[in-house]
Design a protein around this nucleic acid. Structure first.
Lengths: 229, 229
DNA sequence: CCCTGTTTTCGACCAGTAGGCGAAAACATC
DNA sequence: GATGTTTTCGCCTACTGGTCGAAAACAGGG
């Protein structure tokens, strides 16, 4: 039994205040009618990251996908019936203001209320969701879920939807500002129908677009590095 | 050209106060004479984690490997000459007091002064080292590098060697104690030849053995969870 | 036996960071 | 102008990490 290799992408976006994942409905067996992650066989001349971007391009406008990172390998011998197929899974993030064209067999589904899924794809979606939730708090990954410009309230709702629990606007703004990743544009957004003070518009700074993993505890000794400019 | 799949393990241990990796010297082409990571082809009836543990057993006593985790996929089309070979890389950790038997072609090498390595294995070792350094500070991964019982000074030297920078013993003890992962045994270790106060002996608690990733900033609201018990 | 040197341990202090609260600002509608 | 709504900002508290220095507990030498 030869070993094949496929790539799969769990593309996440906050839509209607709910974290959702892009799935397509299989038209043939095995698992006909069940919902699957976009992906496909690894090509001979590409690595897995190139491959997942290529395959994703068949379902959505890849320009809209702001962040792609490797989740891990799924390799249970019988994860797909009949053939031996090892999968490299990816996490993809789409800003909440994008509404990419998608094929007819494709739809967004809330990550916490998945339909009947194909193969081990539900497990992959869970892993993607958990990875996002973990990294949202200690990295700048939020920029990949947010529009280019936004108010603090809008960002708060995004984080709340993605994390699955309420977030304080005050604290969110202070934390992100202190990290040096939030920047006021000077503009203000018009208030809603009920009135209220107009909200200031922010964007992520250049440095925010580099996802910095390190929230190092047990730092090397010596004076702190400045976070500002 | 068919696609094969192999697993590779970067097994790290602090030896002689230096972070080292287990490598074996290739006896035949390609890359004869260069140093390679242990590993091999994925079997038909195993997943990648089972496979890496099986392959590792051929080089070292697997009982000594305290922690194994997936690093990622390496899949550049020409990463191995001649064939298309996708690799799943793993990070393995061995406690510093273990000295496993290893074959004649196998040796430990400092991760910061590698010999001539085969294929893309140097990159994998770098990734393993960086992963360890990142996770040491915000997880309990240290337990996998330490003996079952140890003094704070010994643990400090372990962390310093693994992280590559000095670590304060005071702070290390306080941080780990507050996390509830350090526990005094009540015993004391005899002082060195120069005298000095005898050091208290510690061990990691049960809860420390579960590696807890979450160092969540932007927590859900409400009272703090107690770390005690 | 006391003094010195060494190593560990512990308490105190400081700074940086997150969470919470409420007042003030800036708008809409009546 | 009064009221209601939303945003913004400052203040307070709690917790955590980093640093320092004193005290504790040992060995060895005079």
């Amino acid at each position: 039994m030869p070993t094949g290799h496929e790539v799969l992408a769990a593309v996440l976006q906050v839509r209607a205040d709910v974290l959702q994942v892009l799935l397509w409905q299989r038209g043939k067996d095995p698992d006909r009618g069940r919902w699957a992650l976009p992906g496909g066989a690894l090509g001979a001349t590409e690595d897995v990251e190139e491959s997942v971007r290529r395959q994703l391009a068949e379902k959505v406008d890849v320009q809209e996908v702001a962040h792609v990172e490797q989740l891990g390998v799924f390799s249970a011998p019988a994860r797909v019936p009949g053939v031996r197929l090892v999968a490299t899974a990816f996490l993809g993030l789409v800003p909440s203001d994008a509404d990419p064209e998608i094929p007819a067999d494709t739809a967004w589904h809330p990550v916490d209320r998945l339909p009947e899924t194909a193969f081990d794809h539900a497990e992959i979606v869970r892993d993607a969701r958990d990875r996002l939730r973990a990294k949202l708090s200690y990295t700048n990954l939020g920029f990949a879920l947010a529009p280019r410009e936004f108010t603090v309230s809008a960002l708060r709702e995004l984080y709340a939807a993605a994390l699955g629990h309420p977030v304080s606007a005050t604290n969110l703004q202070r934390v992100l500002t202190r990290r040096g990743v939030l920047e006021a544009t000077g503009e203000t957004a018009p208030p809603g129908p009920a009135g209220g003070r107009p909200a200031a518009v922010f964007r992520f700074t250049e440095r925010a677009l580099r996802v910095t993993d390190a929230s190092a505890v047990l730092r090397p000794p010596g004076p702190r590095e400045s976070t500002g400019e």
